[in-house]
Amino acid sequence: MTTVKSIIRPERVVFASLLIILVHVVASLMNTPASIQLILNSVTCVYIGCFLTFRVERKHNEEFHKRSLSEDAETMTSKDAFQFPLYGSLVLFGIYVLYKFLPKEYLSFIFTSHFMFIGIFCVGAVFEIPFSAVFQDKYEKVNVIKRKININLPLLKKEIDLDFNLQQIICIALALIPTVSYILSRNWIANNIFGIAFSVMGINNLVLPNFKVGYILMWGLFFYDIFWVYGTDVMVTVAKSFDAPIKLIFPFDWENNKHSMLGLGDIVIPGVFVALALKYDIDQQLKKAINIHAVKTPYFNWCFGGYIAGIITTFVVMVVFNHPQPALLFLVPGCTISVLIKALLDGKLKELFLYEESEKGISNTQAVQEQKAD
């Protein structure tokens, strides 16, 4: 028999989700400081994204096994990490040029349509998490659509496998509610629903295999963010012009229509690194764990604390200098240096950089042998 459990008690993720809802409700009823909205939303998104990245299952009472929540998760290589800032720069500058020379209305329609289409499935996937918990996967076993479509065009030959169960259909239908609301009103809450879904699924779908790749990615984007924010007006111009739900919006002065915003990259990129710290904790301790809820997460706690410190510093510096700040300037050191300090204090720096993320099961017999070897 296989039992599947979250690495922490589900009520913690539920509490984090309710906190996001509460912040949005309060902000819609009264002027709420942007600092509170920005910090609470970004921190809870990272927290939820990390703990929903995978589940841990125990097979036949003798083996723990990590299982990703996404079958489409892509593992990044060192080459990908080196190239990520370059490709990001090309895309960013390309969008900047488009907005300079083409009508904004047409571009906004194209980009919004694209992200709405993707967003429906992302929001639906996020809705599936509580839906599945409430109905115990009852509707997941009922297939509604299961067929293959062959596309045979001169430049495109591909086979598409359409496979949707009843649970997915219901959740996608529910995702149409914020979609229609956003299209008709550009409502900031509907925008944030998509932004939060993109963030959670982004953390879920991008996998860092080890800390070497993580450090390459994080520090590469550290310099990328500094250049495009401080060195040019490209980042700020695109962020203000890009009318699509790829950022979180925090209104704080309804009368004067003032709001702050946070790009999803400032949640997803640090989020995948924080998730790697969590996986490191789990892989180290599942070898000795009997009760899944007893697993401690010291490296995650340090890394997550570094993210919190970084996002608070970002907002403080933005207020002091009254200028948009590259959040990764503070988030990257906060996440990466905190993990290094923890590893140095534990005398495990070498072990940290030799770590390779894996989804292989860890049996109790293997755990005993490895403990004796230690």
Score class of each variant (00 low, 15 high):
Y224V: 08
V238G: 00
Y230N: 14
K157T: 15
F227C: 01
V229Y: 06
L162Q: 08
I177Q: 00
L156H: 06
M235V: 04
D163W: 02
W228C: 01
N187A: 08
V180R: 07
Q168F: 04
W219E: 15
C171N: 05
Q167N: 08
T232H: 03
I183L: 02
I183Y: 01
S185H: 09
L221C: 11
F242Y: 14
I169F: 11
K157Q: 14
K212D: 11
L217S: 08
A197E: 15
W219L: 11
T232A: 04
F222Y: 14
E159H: 03
I170H: 05
L221N: 06
Y224W: 12
T237V: 09
C171T: 13
G220H: 03
I170D: 06
Y182L: 15
N191Y: 10
K212Q: 06
M201K: 04
W188F: 11
V207K: 05
D233N: 10
N152R: 00
D163H: 08
N187Y: 09
M201R: 04
A239W: 10
N191F: 09
A197F: 03
N191V: 14
W228M: 13
P154D: 00
A190L: 03
I226A: 04
L174E: 05
A173W: 07
T179S: 14
F223L: 12
L166I: 13
A244V: 02
L153M: 11
N210Q: 07
V200F: 11
P209W: 07
R186Y: 07
F223S: 10
I183R: 06
S185F: 05
L153F: 08
N210G: 02
D161S: 15
N187L: 03
L206C: 08
N205I: 12
N205K: 10
V180Y: 12
V207M: 09
L184I: 12
W188G: 11
F227D: 15
P245G: 02
L162F: 09
W228R: 10
L184G: 06
T237S: 14
I226R: 04
V200S: 01
L208R: 03
L174T: 03
T232P: 05
V236P: 06
P245F: 01
N210A: 10
L156Y: 11
I226T: 06
T232V: 11
Y224Q: 05
M218Q: 13
G231R: 04
F198M: 13
I170E: 02
A175Q: 00
L206Y: 15
W219G: 09
I183K: 07
F198A: 07
L156N: 05
R186E: 14
M201E: 11
C171M: 00
L155T: 07
N210K: 05
V236L: 10
Y182W: 07
T232Q: 03
P245Y: 00
K157D: 15
L208T: 01
R186V: 08
F227V: 15
A197H: 03
F223C: 03
K157V: 13
R186M: 08
D225N: 01
M218V: 08
V180T: 15
I160D: 07
Q168V: 05
N187P: 05
F198D: 14
I189S: 09
N152S: 08
V234Q: 09
F211E: 13
L217D: 14
M235H: 09
W188V: 13
